[in-house]
Write a protein that binds this DNA or RNA. Sequence first.
DNA 1: CGGATAAAAATAATCGTTATTAATAAATAA
DNA 2: TTATTTATTAATAACGATTATTTTTATCCG
Lengths: 152, 152
Amino acid sequence: MSAKHQDLEIQTRIDHILARLREEGFRVTPQRLAVLEVLAASENHPSVEAIYDQVRRRFSTISLATVYKTISLLKEIHEVLELGFADRSSRYDGHKPYPHPHLICTRCGRIQDPELSSLEELTREATTQTGFEIVTHRLDFFGLCNDCRCEE
Amino acid sequence: MSAKHQDLEIQTRIDHILARLREEGFRVTPQRLAVLEVLAASENHPSVEAIYDQVRRRFSTISLATVYKTISLLKEIHEVLELGFADRSSRYDGHKPYPHPHLICTRCGRIQDPELSSLEELTREATTQTGFEIVTHRLDFFGLCNDCRCEE
DNA sequence: CGGATAAAAATAATCGTTATTAATAAATAA
DNA sequence: TTATTTATTAATAACGATTATTTTTATCCG
């Protein structure tokens, strides 16, 4: 994928979220724009701290609370996906704000999105077996990514 | 399953964990016994608070910190599975202390264990697609259990 | 038993997140 | 445009679940 094409994709995503904010009656402020720009541009499911650090480079006076509030707002309008982990840390996905599987490298922290065609079948199996009406899910695989596996 | 049979199963589980504690060189104290008895008897993936409340009925002087420490110890020797959720709450499974799928009712909080045969296939798919060496996983389905679905 | 030392109780500290409040700025009306 | 309304921000206090600390107690093993 060319750099130009990627820039376009990012801008499209930003525009979409801006439209969603207006649509829901929320104001578009420089702080919100800065946060969602970081989320749209980031390829690495950043943490709140990582977002805060990035945003501060261009917006030195922004408050950490504002970052939290903005992320919370984006969650509310379903434009960001929160990945909370057992160790109480959270990472955020601003690209695909709907449930999908993740592969998490326990060595370098990298998070990758696989396309798993058999997930649908698995959901069906769970439904028929238990009588649950399944609304959403969360699926994480943990292990070593290709790079870390070779370095060890 | 008869009540007697269930009692036997619970006792077997308790004995196993006690053996594991001794094996690892940890002492068996009345507090630890009380906590793991609750974990072994509970069918409902209890929270720390729920365990604390149960234990206190028979052991009124036990400290909350002791409950935390005991659970942490049982995690360490891989005899309890912690399920940490995005809202920072945690529930504990003392029956199957290895990764397995869960169905969580978002209305009543009930947690059920399905047997999903296609999970193995899914893991294979993730491995071949990404080059990850998968070590463990976490899979939760959220929705309405059979009872709650009918009551709504 | 008795001593070494792990574990428990009580409580203080920690830390990520949320709530509060006064100041600011965006939207709207005049 | 300017005034007015009200959402949003910044700064910081508060919160709460978990962890660390310290003193006391109790288990284990010879």
